[in-house]
Nucleic acid binder design. Structure first.
Lengths: 217, 217
DNA sequence: CCGGCGCCGTGACTAATATCACGGTTTATT
DNA sequence: AATAAACCGTGATATTAGTCACGGCGCCGG
């Protein structure tokens, strides 16, 4: 059973009736850390709202290359799942729980119905599109215009912001996959950053000391 | 004055009342070929619907590098202008008229008001987001996973589809700018394609003969 | 205690792309 | 005709990133 109080806290903009309706109509799905929520090519029949945990959204091509797009946090929706759901298309992305996670899944018909019934719902949907679109545009910028060293910095900042900590567990191999680069390349770039005192690496952890590059060559 | 009949034809999904309302509240803007509609950093206060001509949407970074994103055709809206307008933010993109063009500009307040008043309007807005989002995702794929030769092919296909012709005027310099590559690189790649019989180049024109690569190395 | 495994660092090499330098062609303008 | 401007093609070279080959370290299960 869905906890209305929790929903209220995570989605404070939603009107009361919408929350009740959601609690009645939607399902809760628990996802253990590491498991996939959505797979490329999968049919999507529901919209997902994150209520717990951290979900990584990434792209994967035919050869298995990955490319990190963004994280979803509690209180956010998978904009892609709305797109795919309403168009009855297959997913173009992968979603993986990075920690134990919990999502509310809303069947397709309600997603659309609530759009006209609840103003707060469609504002929420629109805002999800907007913010993800902008994020995606910035991502395009980076891969189009920047070299790997700058992209790596941007990636680290994003991690810091999403994980809300300066020190987090991550493997170099994973960073390389996220940026669709190779372990060796990232290893060398990180070493440079460490040499300059911007980060510190210990086993399995990366600590960000200072990413302020304004005064650095 | 806005021609309601023309609006009806271009936006067949819109209900009659919406079209009348639009004709009354919106402005028409004529843009000569080559001119900018939107510039990065500009404040956006209205949503734009294309009614005539072809509009190129692209990204530009601080150093003036360009990156083509997609074309907008009559009957389509600039999803970005909706985003920027409703959030009162500055534009993150450039929009340039490739041919003489005409756009309907809708003041911010109506964009939002109509969302709740006219179902057909919000379906249209949602659909604009959706399709642009997917297009952007595919673009990300290409720059993340593909080499320039494949990206060039994809670009040519896109041109062919948008311009609805196999033969169109374009300079190699412009293709290079669109792909954020360099003229020399594109020149060499096009030569390869020409040698294999896939395209033909004459001065200022590019003719696509056959982009079917299934049986080619 | 040993072997396997996953992760890591590094030097050498290769591939892709960008840049430089140059000269050529066409077109418009004077 | 002379000149300028905007294209274009091509060889040489430089830069960036990806790949290969290797060895090291730490951890775990038998």
């Amino acid at each position: 059973m869905i906890d209305e109080q929790q929903l209220n806290k995570l989605f404070p903009s939603f009107e009361k009736e919408l929350v009740s309706n959601m609690a009645a109509k939607a399902d809760i799905r628990e996802i253990p850390a590491g498991q996939l929520l959505i797979k490329t090519g999968q049919n999507i029949r529901s919209t997902m709202l994150i209520t717990k945990g951290l979900v990584k959204i990434y792209r994967e091509d035919e050869e298995g290359n990955e490319f990190f797009i963004y994280y979803l946090q509690p209180g956010q929706a998978c904009a892609l799942s709305m797109i795919c759901a309403t168009k009855r298309e297959t997913s173009q992305i992968m979603a993986r729980a990075m920690t134990d996670a919990e999502v509310v899944t809303i069947p397709l018909q309600y997603m659309d119905q609530w759009m006209s019934e609840y103003k707060t719902w469609y504002y929420f949907v629109l805002e999800s599109y907007r913010s993800r679109f902008e994020e995606l545009l910035i991502t395009v910028d980076h891969i189009a215009f920047r070299n790997m060293d700058e992209r790596l910095l941007f990636y680290l900042e994003k991690q810091q912001d999403s994980l809300k900590t300066h020190r987090f567990p991550i493997s170099i191999t994973e960073i390389a996959a996220d940026l669709n680069s190779s372990r060796e390349v990232i290893s060398r770039l990180l070493k440079k950053l460490a040499d300059k005192g911007h980060i510190r690496l210990d086993k399995n952890f990366l600590e960000i000391l200072n990413l302020d590059f304004k005064a650095v060559d």
